[in-house]
Design a protein around this nucleic acid. Structure first.
Lengths: 199, 199
DNA sequence: ACCTGAACACCGTTCAAGT
DNA sequence: ACCTGAACACCGTTCAAGT
């Protein structure tokens, strides 16, 4: 006699995200997720291969949400303002969903790593904006510089690594302004090299 | 009858670092560390309060090593070249000790967090070099921008987040050059603001 | 003073048995 | 077809007992 399903993969992913944000990745246990959807842990294995597979589904969900939010931020009409808006939206997302955000850039074990194409889509908007500012040849390097800075900044912020005081908001604004200038106006005609002392 | 000690806190930290680098943070178990120093897991609690305390001791050891390496890199005589040398040494350390490096910037639970002063010493050399380039008023923001970028870059690199091809070494060099220019030559006399479209 | 086995409350995961 | 309890091999941690 077939038993009707008491839950669904969607409900499991939603419950998993809630538990992740409330308890951290270590607190995301099969037992807690199972309990949240009204079943026992062994039954979860009917829907996911193992815990890593559940983490993968959650990361992919987060990844789609993050890409959608960044996409919605780059609508100012100017690439300079778009880059600033992207940086602000990037940081705001990390503050609102610190555990989900951390997962986006985490070194995940094989089996928990999200689909490669889906991950690429996450930085598509930033790449497009960087291309507008830096030109097609430098687009990829410019985008990597900006994303690296933004990720480094918010991950240090979330880790409590800025311990020397000062205005963190101002430091973030400083960074995005300098980076915008920096990738917008390359030294004309010359190879990139360290500046001479005279400047 | 007192029993002579069969191990020491130093031996435990050294063994812990080896296991961390070989097996990752999840693989750093009390049982493995105990076994590596020739005792049983419960005996570890004579030397450390709990696992988080052991992690703290390891992070602090890594932190001292990292600071020492950065300090040894900033010896070129010019702040521009020092910044580049610091960035290269920063990245090289992360490549050589990926698990130890990850711990330096990780969101650690209370009890595993290293001594605050010790952590500050880690970025002291970078702060000093940034001060030479950006001036005393902008030193902190400039240092934060550079460290954020460097950390973001190598952590993305280690996470396998650069999936769009291109030359990663070149992107790193691009970033350090642009950032050096960017923090060295602020717009004279004016407040920092987003650049106008013309430039 | 240091070390240990046994125990406890957790994990993830498998599997035979239930409906 | 789905769900479960029982079981297994792990965790971190405590503690009485051994030397």
């Amino acid at each position: 006699v077939p038993t009707p399903a008491r839950t669904s993969i969607d409900a499991i992913v939603i419950a998993g995200r809630d538990i992740l944000e409330a308890e951290g990745l270590d607190g995301l246990t099969m037992q807690r997720v199972a309990s949240a959807v009204g079943i026992r842990a062994p039954s979860l294995y009917k829907r996911v291969r193992d815990r890593r597979d559940l983490v993968r589904l959650i990361v992919e969900d987060v990844s789609r949400e993050f890409a959608r939010i960044l996409d919605g931020a780059a609508v100012t009409g100017s690439p300079q303002r778009d880059l600033r808006a992207l940086a602000m939206a990037f940081r705001a997302y990390a503050h609102e969903h610190p555990e989900a955000y951390a997962l986006l850039f985490a070194r995940l074990p094989e089996g928990a790593r999200p689909d490669a194409e889906l991950t690429a889509r996450g930085t598509e908007t930033i790449l497009r904006t960087a291309r507008s500012l830096a030109g097609p040849e430098r687009a990829l390097e410019a985008a990597r510089t900006v994303v690296a800075w933004a990720h480094g900044f918010v991950s240090m912020e979330l880790a409590g690594a800025f311990r020397l005081g000062g205005d963190i908001d101002r430091a973030f604004a400083f960074g995005v302004d300098r980076l915008t200038i920096s990738i917008t106006a390359p030294p004309t005609g010359s190879e990139v090299r360290p500046p001479s002392h005279g400047g």
